[in-house]
Design a protein around this nucleic acid. Structure first.
Ligand SMILES: [Zn+2]
Ligand SMILES: [Zn+2]
Ligand SMILES: [Zn+2]
Ligand SMILES: [Zn+2]
Lengths: 156, 156
DNA sequence: TCAACCTTGTTATACTATAACATATCCCGT
DNA sequence: ACGGGATATGTTATAGTATAACAAGGTTGA
């Protein structure tokens, strides 16, 4: 599978955003309520991961008197629908910019600018899957998160 | 690389433990102080990941009047020496049972019994490394954590 | 009508992690 | 012996992340 989202390349981020939002509406219909939609829009504003409390703060700055569970619920919903991903290493969340094509995502996290690229991977064929099979371990989900420096941040 | 630690297979865990401890002493010398050694021993007691506060509680139950930084410092030291690994998904730590052979670990986490197997992987050749190279992203470290069911827990 | 389900509001609390400062020890060069 | 740097530990306080539990409204369909 190829790279499916390109924060580290020049791209038309506005269409990047509107496409993802359109796909979200298609997937969720009614269930994309106001708060959920607003949180998704926040995540889509950039390719930087947001913590739950970042989201909460933004909601509050918009006049919503929200408590932590509001942010977590919205994020949990988006993750469950495949519209967002949790980045374990950052305790934070990014929007999925290609929910329709996203099956087994892996992430490239720039430790300097905090942008996160989503790439696809083929876990069924890798060394990990082979080892798991040899042990009789049944993999249900794999977290793959690489940290490093994006092209921009390599040249200070 | 092959599977380097076998919690999901029948194995002689006592020697599993003493070997890791011997390697730790060799790597650290003096720097494996009493607390650090004790924490490593705790992690080596089983293949289940322990949270920092689990470690803290055990220290306290042994008469050590420890505060959270004591546990975190010991764990951070062990991780820095390659004697333990942090499991991001669990916010917890496991001992490395083969520190001498451990370069780019990946983990198999059983969601039922919480045991964690460490396996090696070859990130230089995988699809992720290829995508990163295509983007000019320089990977420094990769977290690979698979969740699922170990052989024992698949048959309830 | 009412029951089941989903969504949101709200309070309180649990869990995870680190900052900051104090104290002690050891090793080393003078 | 002295002083200074590096390392390790002790201690207090606080920051950051996440969820339990209960209340209340809305929709849907039997
Ligand atoms: Zn974009
Ligand atoms: Zn960057
Ligand atoms: Zn063992
Ligand atoms: Zn198991």
């Amino acid at each position: 599978m190829m790279v499916i989202s390109g924060p580290f390349e020049r791209h038309d981020h506005a269409s990047c955003r509107t496409r993802a939002l359109a796909q979200a509406e298609e997937v969720c219909g009614d269930r994309l309520t106001a708060v959920r939609r607003r949180v998704l829009e926040m995540l889509l504003e950039s390719h930087v991961a947001l913590g739950a409390y970042d989201v909460l703060e933004r909601l509050r700055s918009e006049g919503h008197r929200a408590q932590p569970p509001v942010a977590y619920r919205a994020l949990d919903f988006l993750v469950a629908q495949g519209l967002a991903h949790r980045i374990e290493r950052l305790n934070a969340f990014i929007a999925c910019h290609r929910p329709a094509d996203c099956e087994a995502p892996a992430f490239l996290i720039c430790r300097a600018c905090n942008r996160v690229a989503e790439t696809g991977n083929a876990p069924k064929r890798g060394a990990l899957a082979r080892d798991a099979r040899a042990l009789g371990f049944e993999i249900e989900e794999t977290v793959i998160e690489a940290q490093g420096l994006c092209p921009t941040c390599q040249t200070p």
